[in-house]
Design a protein around this nucleic acid. Structure first.
Lengths: 198, 198
DNA sequence: CAATCCTTTTGACAATTGTCAAAAACCTAA
DNA sequence: TTAGGTTTTTGACAATTGTCAAAAGGATTG
């Protein structure tokens, strides 16, 4: 099979569309950001971030699906799932600059746009509007995490599955059941039984 | 009983000490921030943020204890607890500018320093270093929430209580058991039994 | 097609946690 | 101190979810 890429490596359109939902960048800020943006095309099962290492990138997902995971008592736990038009990073490691148990693996062939921490940090210092973008992206992440936290706090397994189907119906098709289960904080047997009661 | 306050209303020292742990502000930034900082002294049980309303402030706690809560199926759920040297806000509402079910109540007589959203927003625009402070504070909040999320995700009730005792031992003394229980995502009976097995 | 591998489902049972109700312990104020 | 309120503990039982093991179902490959 043959792929023909037309001006592919410079097509940052989707990334900047998304960014534009957070902040209106100046021409300078936009150019600076473009200058450090790195396109990565990687196949399914590629380990994007190794566990127990420092995560140096935050990725925008143009196409594909990432799974953030870690091991708890020997068991694989899915911490987060991100699909196209969202961001992915081992965020605690990215922010603290320390290794974290979370790794990230691709569940599908993916097209990502990466921003390196140190380069982004330089732009934060230089461009006020990029610092603002950073603030708004982290705020967005916090809101998402809080919503997920609320679910886990006092909703039953069935309710959590219900919410997932409403918010991210495609995950059900695209992510193996065992990974969905641990994402919801339950075992795969329990999820299978929830599903059986349709 | 009589209280004598000496230069009390201008003592922002603790606030700026804390802020200094996040970012080194310029003289201008610091002064601007000081100019919008509002001291609030409020008694125990005061409702700092009403449920289902927009939260306009983020508070630094010089002294005291706040409880963020909401009602889930008619039951009171403790979402977050913050004590001295930490921050408190109905953060989702503060960030989204929309009402949120979370309210905040004081569990002790408290001394707080409040920042109004709109005034802070103006400073964000004017002062790059305050925007940076905002980014770092939100990042800090995200890290804390992630840690709490991890707990809830796959730790047993006893493990969660154990972690709370390690990280916030004073909460055990200062917060009623029922509120600690819902903070940990369990019933108060379960927590009482965990405690009984010392 | 058969063989293999991986994912999902099902069954039997155990462990954890929740529910409801009542008793005990603890505060506070008259 | 006593009376009244609130908080915490305890008991009996139910519901939910987990564990372990095996079977069923799907996909891939030679």
């Amino acid at each position: 099979m043959t792929y023909i890429c037309i001006t592919d490596s410079i097509n940052m359109e989707k990334f900047f569309n998304r960014v534009g939902q957070f902040v209106q960048l100046t021409k300078e800020g936009r150019d600076a950001l473009a200058s450090i943006l790195r396109k990565v095309e990687l196949p399914k099962d590629h380990l994007l971030v190794k566990q127990d290492s420092v995560c140096h990138f935050v990725y925008f997902i143009e196409r594909g699906l990432t799974r953030t995971f870690y091991y708890k008592d020997g068991k694989d736990v899915t911490d987060w799932l991100s699909a196209e038009d969202m961001f992915a990073s081992s965020i605690i490691s990215f922010l603290t600059r320390k290794p974290d148990r979370r790794g990230i693996v691709l569940l599908e062939d993916s097209v990502l746009w990466g921003l390196h921490h140190d380069e982004l940090e330089l732009l934060y210092k230089q461009y006020h509007d990029i610092e603002r973008l950073g603030r708004l992206l982290v705020s967005f992440g916090l809101i998402q995490l809080q919503q997920r936290f609320d679910e886990l706090h006092f909703a039953t397994a069935a309710q959590r599955y219900q919410t997932l189907m409403e918010n991210n119906p495609t995950f059900i098709q695209r992510v193996p059941l065992g990974m969905i289960a641990s994402y919801l904080g339950i075992t795969q047997e329990t999820l299978s039984r929830i599903r059986a009661q349709h």
